[in-house]
Nucleic acid binder design. Sequence first.
DNA 1: AAATGTGTTGAC
DNA 2: TCAACACATTTG
Length: 284
Amino acid sequence: MSDYSWRVGGTSGISDSENGVEAVYLRKLPSSKYKGVVPQPNGRWGAQIYEKHRRTWLGTFNEEEEAAKAYDVAARRFRGYAALTNFMVSEKGIQDDIETTFLNSHSKAEIVDMLRKHTYNDELEQSARNYGSKESGTDVMESKPSACARVQLFDKVVTPSDVGKLNRMVIPKQHAEKHLPLQLASSSKGGLLNFEDNGGKIWRFRYSFWNSSQSYVLTKGWRRFVKEKNLKAGDIVSFHRSTGSDKRLFIEWEQRDSSRKPSMKQVESGQMVRLFGVNLFSKS
DNA sequence: AAATGTGTTGAC
DNA sequence: TCAACACATTTG
């Protein structure tokens, strides 16, 4: 009997360590029936597309079909409407649909980024919402992220560990419990929350409670945000929610003004106070 | 330690 | 151009 199994590289194996003998049986990874889809050692699926001898990685996915759809999106953006895809249909004369417009208004890099973050569908949906509002005459203020009526939830001056290699941001407990009930996160999408930034870009973070530190944290997806915004310790991240019933969430960030002397400015935000360049929490 | 995604190769 | 494979790098 095999004591355990594992997978490394392009092969997987089973180790039988009876009598201290380590016999290894290599097993081939299953090929995908979909174009642009490759198996991953852990049973998940990767998507990739080639262009001029160069491979562009499109991310990893739980389902083979998800990966195939990611490839399709990339194929259409990279090679045009007539590109060969796994699922998409290309009929003559409908090259002006919303998705095509959406694809054409974003760079390849942006589309790839959305695919790797798994936010493509959300961004497309949001784009469609904006498009629809123009047509129907609905108040643009309700859909346009930068102008949408919103209420502030809380700010946080990010700490060194928030922007460090821990790849997570701690949400101060009182704010988390007041504004972001874990139930809201863990209910439908398994702990995933979408936030829109001022550019209308969607950021998806995993939101969870860590028992070890008794703290609420944003984990998966946070590192990418820190990197793209070049977030530094001391910068302020601001969380908002739309006032409407649509429950949309927003994230904003503000760079620390290092040109100003810390002692000259007192920034107050919620229960946090920045004084003499030091962040203090007021007792309450 | 596990997962991701790059280096590389050879078939098509 | 493409997927297979090995495995270095990155992430949790």
